[in-house]
Design a binder for these strands. Structure first.
Length: 266
DNA sequence: AATGGGACCTGCGCGC
DNA sequence: TGCGCGCAGGTCCCAT
């Protein structure tokens, strides 16, 4: 599932392969993913525009076009952007001036495409908390200190801090040796600081390895990301903790699968 | 205010 | 071999 590192990887790759190209046509195979505006307006607002700039905000990808419009893409769980596309599993194909196409795939149809004139006015954008790289350690520590809620759902709350999803929340908490059910304000200053550092390091290392290919995520080239082999707890229930050998546990927390080492994480 | 659950979806893996 | 069911998770929405 694309989180900040996966979306950042896609952004960097798109900059290499589609930036500066003109969108000459759009084929919509399934209009469910087009959330706004209406399909024909969507097409009209894109065709003949050039991709001028590519931005990532948390897990949202934004393609700024030469005509003043922006295409905002949220991949949710199974969204993919593939270039050059073959159209086979595309929900939407963007045909480009180089004769190739950028395919938007999405097996589960959860993803959202929006064409708007001002992406910064999107409700989703306005509600986003800061990304981990945009705040200081002391700010992070202060943000946690007045929150009684469980730490894992809290760091996955995009309005609190943005970019972290289920996978990297689990990995960062393991690395910081913090139990996912700890109330946020029960962490010591030392634990808060370590967690903040581990969140940043985990995301950074995942970006360096071009993301984690679990479920559907692939790079724009179609290649899988390389970070899965570094996972310590995610999807490893029953397997020995790589630090102490205790079987990794899986619980449901906030309706989400949560993986942790019951011995290392207290 | 915080928390929990359901909805949105599809395909996969499991048990029988 | 085949069928039904639970599950996967990002975000929104509603209820408590």
């Amino acid at each position: 599932m694309p989180e900040l590192p996966e979306v950042e990887t896609i952004k960097r790759e798109l900059e290499k392969v589609v930036l500066g190209k003109k969108i000459t046509g759009v084929t919509i195979h399934n209009q469910k993913v087009i959330r706004e505006p209406q399909v024909d307006k969507f097409k009209k607002g894109i065709i003949d525009a050039t991709i001028k700039n590519i931005i990532r905000k948390a897990k949202l990808l934004i393609l700024e076009l030469s005509n003043g419009n922006s295409l905002a893409i949220h991949l949710k769980m199974t969204g993919q952007l593939v270039y050059p596309g073959d159209g086979k599993s595309a929900r939407v194909s963007f045909h480009l001036s180089d004769g190739k196409s950028l395919d938007f795939n999405d097996q589960r149809l959860f993803a959202e495409l929006r064409l708007i004139d001002d992406w910064s006015a999107l409700k989703f954008i306005q509600g986003l908390g800061p990304e981990p790289f945009d705040i200081t350690e002391s700010r992070f520590n202060k943000m946690l200190s007045n929150k009684k809620t469980k730490i894992k759902p809290l760091i996955m709350d995009q309005t609190f801090i943005s970019g972290i999803g289920n996978l990297y929340a689990a990995e960062a908490l393991f690395r910081a040796k913090v139990h996912p059910e700890r109330p946020a304000n029960s962490l010591s200053d030392k634990e808060k600081s370590l967690l903040f550092q581990e969140i940043k390091d985990t995301l950074k290392e995942a970006i360096e390895n071009k993301g984690s290919s679990v479920d559907q995520y692939v790079q724009v080239s179609g290649k899988p990301g390389g970070y899965v082999k570094f996972h310590k707890v995610y999807d490893r229930q029953g397997k020995p903790c790589l630090v102490c050998g205790t079987p990794v546990k899986r619980i449901a927390l906030g309706g989400r699968g949560t993986f942790y080492c019951p011995k290392c994480q207290q």
